[in-house]
Design a protein around this nucleic acid. Sequence first.
DNA 1: ACGATATACCTCGCAACCGATGTATCAATA
DNA 2: TATTGATACATCGGTTGCGAGGTATATCGT
Lengths: 174, 174
Amino acid sequence: MLELAILGFLYDTPLHGYELRKRISALTGHVKPVAESTLYPAIKRLEKADLLARATEPGAVAAPRHVLTLTEAGRRELRHRLAEPDPRDISDENRWFTVLAFLRHLDDAAAQSAVLRRRLAFLEEPASFFYDGDRPLRAEELDDPFRRGILTIARATSRAELTWLRETIASLGG
Amino acid sequence: MLELAILGFLYDTPLHGYELRKRISALTGHVKPVAESTLYPAIKRLEKADLLARATEPGAVAAPRHVLTLTEAGRRELRHRLAEPDPRDISDENRWFTVLAFLRHLDDAAAQSAVLRRRLAFLEEPASFFYDGDRPLRAEELDDPFRRGILTIARATSRAELTWLRETIASLGG
DNA sequence: ACGATATACCTCGCAACCGATGTATCAATA
DNA sequence: TATTGATACATCGGTTGCGAGGTATATCGT
């Protein structure tokens, strides 16, 4: 998820690590804070895999900057990760939002639509958080008000997202 | 999050690892699958910390089972983790849902309410995923349809949850 | 008789994540 | 003048997570 965000932001324009950190924090930081000690090793991993290159520049304000630029392989890698997301990128909302945040980088509307349809298929599966045997329970069947809350909230999200997905898929396919 | 789920399920009744795995999979598995190679080491960690004890029983169907029971320290630990959740348990929906799933185990309505109010405070902060400088952007201000989707969906979730939180806090407060 | 499926547990090695801590420079504020 | 805060990068050790693989037993369908 972090690597996807790094690739995604650098796809637009080269950035140094500190600026990258601020952008990632703005995108997902209020939900999942990004530690510097996670970001810098991730950058190194991507550099080692030749997905990005770094160039040292004198710091504009303070210490020298390492400006990060995606390589051609890095650009391919982002498109690949967007076009064929890991199942977790589809099911986990945090990861899914990161995919969505950069999905415009897929040039092909059909490819974008295919990704949205994967999420649609996931949301259309009858799934709950609580079961009676195999049967998914509805909010009304639960005594526990907190568990009822989970279902109420999840249902609201799901409805909103289904509506948006169907509209957006239609507008892409049009 | 995994440890919280283990403690939460065992708070009700002793279970063996395999059954625990099925319950955790039902609860969060459709979003975040639980690997056995994550669960068993987690059980060991909790055992080592004296939060749970294991007793070997002949297997009802196949191999022998290790029935896991929370110790008194384990029960205290669950209540503590519920009463004073990590900030990430509040901000990250996956973790938050796990807290909610077991929040009934806090005996005190005031303590439950305090936890809900922490989530309420988090949701009431003006946060977005996209900014113009410091100003959070609204869905209508974005060109990118996918990023607009993120805000649309997040807004719908947030509204539903705020409503539910306020209602539930009111009903707890008497 | 054989293979698939379910039950039931476990280890290994690698990857990822994070808190604590360290190193510098520069600007603003007290 | 001192200290805080922002910029800018990095390492270390510990913890968590996961895929791949392993070991058994019992059941059910073919």
